[in-house]
């Protein structure tokens, strides 16, 4: 069981990192990462929805008939998204305003529906919750990193704190749409490089069997 939890944690945060490995949930990744704070807020909101929806869907997995499962999942997800939205509007109005429409668009974030479909609907509640947690953390950390990079370079600040004079050095390009694509593309590449290096090392040390599957997955991705 310990092993399984470790697997889930590794899968969610690294091996199947939704942002850099699976390239899912790209819309918020590109749109809200102009500042680190927004990214963190978005990541936590997604994590919350992911955990809740995974738990509920896992609980109801034997009740929901197969043919209406997608609408059911969507309704459940939408409910939690609405709750997050209400919560943010009531207690963190600044974040609510800066995330704007992307808060509602968590509903159609492929990560959530993807996890519901591929994990929560076949697995027990506990593991589903953990899967949601780690997938969400993977997403949160990834987009926060991206937010930090874009905020540092684009507006010379970090989590809203001015670090140096933006007029002296800043590249406003990074706060633009094009800058988002550039940052994301390069981060995927860097993540791939690191991942492959570490992967090769582990394989070398352990002749790791299980990582083979991930390797094939990666090649499949690249082929695509």
């Amino acid at each position: 069981m310990k092993n399984r939890i470790r697997e889930i944690a590794l899968d969610g945060t690294i091996r199947q990192n939704p942002t850099f490995r699976l390239v899912l949930g790209t819309c918020p990744t590109l749109a809200v990462t102009t500042t680190a704070f927004n990214s963190l807020g978005m990541g936590l909101a997604v994590t919350f929805v992911l955990i809740c929806s995974n738990v509920i869907i896992s609980l109801l997995r034997n009740v929901i008939p197969d043919r209406v499962r997608i609408p059911c999942f969507i309704v459940i997800i939408a409910t939690f998204v609405t709750i997050v939205r209400m919560f943010m509007e009531a207690y963190i109005p600044d974040l609510y305003e800066s995330l704007g429409v992307f808060l509602s668009l968590i509903v159609v974030n492929c990560i959530i529906l993807g996890r519901a479909e591929s994990y929560a609907s076949h697995n027990p509640v506990g593991y589903s919750a953990l899967d949601g947690l780690f997938m969400g953390l993977g997403f949160t950390v990834s987009i926060t990193v991206m937010g930090i990079i874009r905020e540092l370079l684009g507006s010379a600040s970090l989590f809203g704190l001015k670090l140096w004079d933006a007029n002296a050095f800043s590249i406003p390009f990074f706060t633009n749409a094009a800058g988002a694509f550039l940052t994301y593309g390069l981060l995927i590449a860097i993540f791939n490089v690191c991942y492959n290096a570490v992967d090769r090392k582990i394989k070398h040390n352990q002749h790791g069997k299980m990582l083979q599957s991930v390797e094939t997955q990666t090649t499949a991705k690249e082929a695509e």
Partner: peptide
């Protein structure tokens, strides 16, 4: 292109230039 750039990264970079044009 270099192996790590193949696939999504290259697509992102292409989109980056398109976004610049649309800007």
């Amino acid at each position: 292109v270099a192996k790590p750039l193949r696939g999504f990264p290259m697509t992102m970079l292409t989109a980056c230039f398109m976004a610049m044009a649309f800007y």
